[in-house]
Measured scan of single mutants.
Amino acid sequence: AQASVVANQLIPINTYLTLVMMRSEVVTPVGIPAEDIPRLVSMQVNRAVPLGTTLMPDMVKGYA
């Protein structure tokens, strides 16, 4: 199964992502692939992302 990117903490709206904020986990539904974690660093979330939430492409500015 493919691992997705999951929030490792509460990520406030407009926060620039860093490695410590994200982890990879096999979840349903599938979100942003874990292999894209390096690409996500320094990208901004466009909403608050609670701890344990799967990151979806529409949550990250400029990802989709």
Rank of each mutant, 00 (worst) to 15 (best):
V60A: 02
V27I: 11
V30Q: 09
T54F: 02
M43E: 08
V20E: 12
Q44K: 06
A1F: 08
I37N: 01
L40D: 00
A7C: 03
E35D: 11
K61L: 11
V26L: 14
G62F: 08
V27F: 02
T15A: 14
K61A: 15
L51Y: 08
P29S: 06
Q9Y: 14
A3S: 15
T53E: 09
A48P: 07
Y16S: 11
P50H: 14
V60T: 02
L55R: 00
I11V: 15
V26Y: 11
N14V: 02
I37G: 05
R23L: 13
P57I: 07
L51E: 13
K61F: 09
D36M: 09
E35N: 05
I32S: 01
L55G: 00
A7S: 13
P38C: 04
Q9D: 11
I13G: 11
Q44L: 09
T28C: 05
L19Q: 11
V20N: 15
Y63K: 04
P38V: 07
A7I: 07
S24M: 10
P33K: 09
T53A: 13
T15Q: 13
P57G: 07
P12F: 08
V49A: 11
A7Y: 01
Q9M: 15
A64R: 13
T54E: 02
L17A: 00
A48K: 11
M21K: 08
V26P: 07
L17Q: 00
P57N: 05
V20W: 05
A3P: 13
V49T: 06
S4G: 04
S24D: 14
Q44E: 13
A7T: 10
L10M: 14
P12E: 13
S4W: 02
M22A: 00
I11E: 00
P38K: 09
A3M: 14
V41R: 06
T15K: 05
L10I: 14
R23A: 09
I11W: 01
M59T: 07
N46F: 06
L40C: 03
I13E: 15
G62W: 06
Q2E: 15
T53F: 11
M22V: 10
M21W: 03
M21T: 03
T28Q: 14
K61V: 15
V6T: 11
M56N: 08
L10V: 12
P29H: 07
P50T: 11
M43C: 03
V41K: 05
L10C: 13
V30S: 15
L19W: 12
V20R: 05
Q2W: 06
P50R: 08
S4V: 02
R23G: 14
P57C: 05
L17P: 03
M43K: 07
L51D: 11
Y63W: 13
I37A: 11
D58G: 13
